[in-house]
Computed example of a mutant assay.
Amino acid sequence: MGSHRRLAPSSGFNRGAGTALCVLSAAAAGLCAAPADAAPHTDTRTEVDRLYAAAEKATEAYNKADERAGELRREVSDTQDRIARQQERVNSLRDTLGSLAGAQYRSGGMDPSLALLFSDDPADYLDKAAALDRINAREAGRLRDLTSAMRELDQERSEALGSLAELDRSRKAVAAHKRTVERKLATARRLLASLPHAERAAYDRASRSTRDSLGFPSLGGAAAPSARAAAAVAAARSALGRPYVWGANGPSGFDCSGLMQWSYARAGVALPRTSQEQRSAGQHVPLSQARPGDLITYRADASHVAMYVGNGQVIHAPYPGAPVRYDRVGMMPISSITRV
C-alpha cells in the first residue's frame, strides 16, 4: 500500500444517501396519494409515466448506494491491511527492545557508575553505553510513533465500519422504496391493461416505441466517432431483447445505466455506475452533432440514460417489464449528450 491516507468521512455519503432517500420519500408519498382505481385515460397515461420516472430514480439511487458500499468495503479492507502491517512492526520493535533490556539485565543491571568502575576497558564501556542510549532513544521514538499511528488507524477502522453500517441501513431503506415502486409499477401495468387497445397503442406511440422496434433499423449514414464507440454500439445491439432488471448491469439483464456500463466495458472503457455520473463521463456535444455511441441522458435529474445509434434512435433498457430495445431519441426531455 502507498502513503498513509485518511478514509473519507461517512458524512459525505450520509448527505448523498439522505438526499436520495428524501427524493424517494417524496416520490413515494406522491405515488401513494394517487388513486389506483379507474381514471380518465389521459390521467392514466400521466400516472404511468410518473410511475416509470419514480422507478428509474429509485433504481439510480439504489445503484449509487451499492457503488458506495463497494468503495467502503475496499477502504475498510485496505485499512485492516495497514493495521496488520503496523502491528507486525510494533511487535518487531517490542522484540528488539525486549532483547536490549534482557542484555542489560544479564550484564548485571548495575548502577552505571559502578559498571564504569569495574570495567576492564572504561573507554569501551562508555562507547557502548552511549550507543545503547542512542538505540534506546531511537527505538522508543519509533514505538511512540507507531503507537500513535495504531491509534489513528484504529480510529479510521472504527469510522469506516461505522460508515459501512450506516450505508447498509441506507441501502435497506432504498430497497424498501424500491419494493414500493415495484408495487406501483404493477398498478401501472394494470392501468395500462384496463385501457382499450387503441389507447394502449397510442400510449406506446406517444411515450415509448412499440414492440416492432426490436427489429434492426438502419443506422443511416452516421458513423461512430471512435473504434471504442463502435464496439459499444455493437455490444448494446447484442443486448436487444434482454429484460430490464433492477440494479443489474448484465449480461442477462440490465437497468438503464447498467446497459451503458456493460456495453462500454465490452469496448474496454470503464464507465461509472449511475446515469448521473455517466452524464459527466466525457465531452458534451449538441444533439445536432450526436454520433453512434454517444450517451443521451434524460430529464433534468439525468435519471435515465440511453445510447444513440444513429438515424434518430437510441438503444436503452426502458423500464421494468420492457426489454432492451430501440426508441426515438426524443422519447423524453433530453438533459445532455455525452461523447465518451
Rank of each mutant, 00 (worst) to 15 (best):
A206Y: 09
L219G: 11
V174W: 05
A202I: 03
E159Q: 14
A160Y: 06
S194Y: 08
P217Y: 00
A188G: 13
R169H: 09
F216M: 08
R190S: 02
L167P: 01
R211G: 04
R211H: 01
H177A: 00
A193R: 11
A149N: 12
G215C: 08
S194H: 04
P196H: 09
L161W: 08
L164A: 08
G221Y: 01
A201F: 06
L191Y: 07
A149G: 14
R189C: 02
K172W: 04
L191T: 13
A201E: 08
R190L: 12
E152S: 15
S148R: 14
L164K: 06
A193T: 04
M150L: 15
R200K: 15
R169Q: 07
P196K: 14
S158F: 01
A188F: 06
L153Y: 12
R151I: 11
F216A: 09
L153W: 15
D212E: 09
L214P: 09
T180Q: 02
E199Q: 15
M150W: 08
A223S: 07
S207T: 11
L195W: 09
S209C: 09
S209H: 10
F216S: 08
R169F: 06
R157Q: 12
S148N: 10
R179N: 13
L192D: 07
A186S: 11
R179E: 00
R157K: 07
A222P: 05
L219M: 05
A175D: 02
